[in-house]
Design a protein around this nucleic acid. Sequence first.
DNA 1: AATCATCGCAACCGCTCGGGC
DNA 2: AGCCCGAGCGGTTGCGATGAT
Length: 265
Amino acid sequence: MYWGEVMAGHVGRGVLEEEVWRKGPWTAEEDRLLVEYVRLHCEGRWNSVARLAGLKRNGKSCRLRWVNYLRPDLKRGQITPQEESIILELHARWGNRWSTIARSLPGRTDNEIKNYWRTHFKKKAKSPSDAAEKARNRLMRKQQFHQQQQQQQQLQQQHRAQQQQMQFNFDMKGIMAMLEDDIHRTPYKSQSRQEMINMHQNTTEEQGYLYSMLNDNSSASSAPETSAEEVLWDGLWNIDDVHGNFSVASAASRFGLYNLVAPFC
DNA sequence: AATCATCGCAACCGCTCGGGC
DNA sequence: AGCCCGAGCGGTTGCGATGAT
């Protein structure tokens, strides 16, 4: 147990008061206080946590503890082979943009993915036949393959899309109502509605790609079979990633989160 | 059994970005 | 326009756990 830097500031009637931030591992009691605070006040304004929650931690530390460890929608346990392949592919595409990669892995944090990469792939990547290079090559081949398939299927999809359009329009009304409710209930700093919608569109593209990638081993031709609607559904489920890391895979825990937090927000 | 090396992960640090004033 | 502050991100560190010798 150790104590961190001393923050000095003028408080009250010009009296210099020293504020000492606690550092190092979190205790169970600190965790309990932080969870209780978030339950009551939701996320955001982390710097006020120290005052309001009775924690001698700075806002940064509180945010990190919540995001990386206490958040109820976190997925525990080892990284699965599927998740590993996603990490490889996305790292090949985006490099060390851990938070971006984490958005495609519901329940996983950027810190967790970063640590996983460092311990599992960084050494391998030093050799000429490094994993990242291979992944990059695979990605190129898949993109070429995907483009060809897209061209072939474009005509077929146009016909199908027309048929689906009517039913889809009907469904979208319900979905948008749900999202409206979701966005309303989950505060997310500096994320305007239009930004979220834009991000949703990007996510939809990514989901389509990931879907094809995950199906690559079992049936290489199955990915292009994925209908535009399925891809859209995946994207819609993951729109929550931009402000809460939610997807179908974490649906159950999400309800747990709302039970814990949302009723108070 | 003791020592050393390695691994895995939680936590910290420094920087950047965006919003408010 | 410039400054300040809060939040988020990627890089790094520290330490306990585990395995090898």
